[in-house]
Amino acid sequence: MAKSNKKYAFFLGCIAPLRYPGIEKSTRVVFEALGVELVEFEDASCCPAPGVIRAFNKKTWLAAAARNLAIAEKMGLEILTICNGCYGSLYDAAHELNNDKKLLAEVNEILAEIGMEYKGTTNVKHFAEVLYKEVGIEAIKAKITKPLDYKIATFYGCHFLKPSKIKDLDDPENPHMLDDLVEATGAKSVPRKQKTMCCGAGGGVRAGFPETATKFTLTNLENMKVSGAEFIVDVCPFCHLQFDAGQKGTGYAIPVLHLSQLYGLAMGMDAKALGVANHVTPVKL
């Protein structure tokens, strides 16, 4: 039995269900295997995306995020996200609203127009945080039936740990949480330069200035290649997209796995059922 018997409202976001459904599927089956119940989060929208929608109109961002938070509040559950962007937006929005009654009242005037209210009680968690803190490394190790011997470049992304002042999950400059989670499978996390550098996709840069985003990605890929990594393991579908699709035509070919997919493989699940065949950069196991 896994240590945790917790239940979460499973927030899908956009990139996972609509570009990498294998990530959604892998999360569902892996959490089920670990004894954590993911309850369907019906009627949610985009979180909305922190670097674009928040940058275009902060009022829209906050009210739409509050709508999502209010749905989970009605379910009586904490939110589990599988994307750094969703985590960034929903955590930040909850942090603002749960600590500022005046702002909460302003947002509730908007929500009242659709017959909703947010009381300011929803907590938001990142799935890797839940794996590390709620499930625990030992309970994960107990479920590994097919230990892996891969050399892995761990990719934390930005909005998982930062801003650390309000998140306080791990050292943002020299983190270890994801490395520990990856090594629970038997794989080795290999050190590299500039490990906490951004993938390049966030803040509307992938959409607006794709050549800038690619430059970020190339710097990361070169550092990963030099490190001897055979796989990239991320905790965010948007970083995943940037590395997987963004790698095309660069001359690099390092396969990309979301942590949920790595866990599925290490638990002996069929690779096809985890959606890895749908990746742009071929995943050879």
């Binding site: 930005c158 930062k162 943002p172 996709a201 840069v205």
Partner: peptide, 10 residues
């Protein structure tokens, strides 16, 4: 618009 909101500065 060239900032990816990575928070390294912050």
């Amino acid at each position: 618009w060239q900032c990816t909101t990575c928070y390294a500065c912050q």
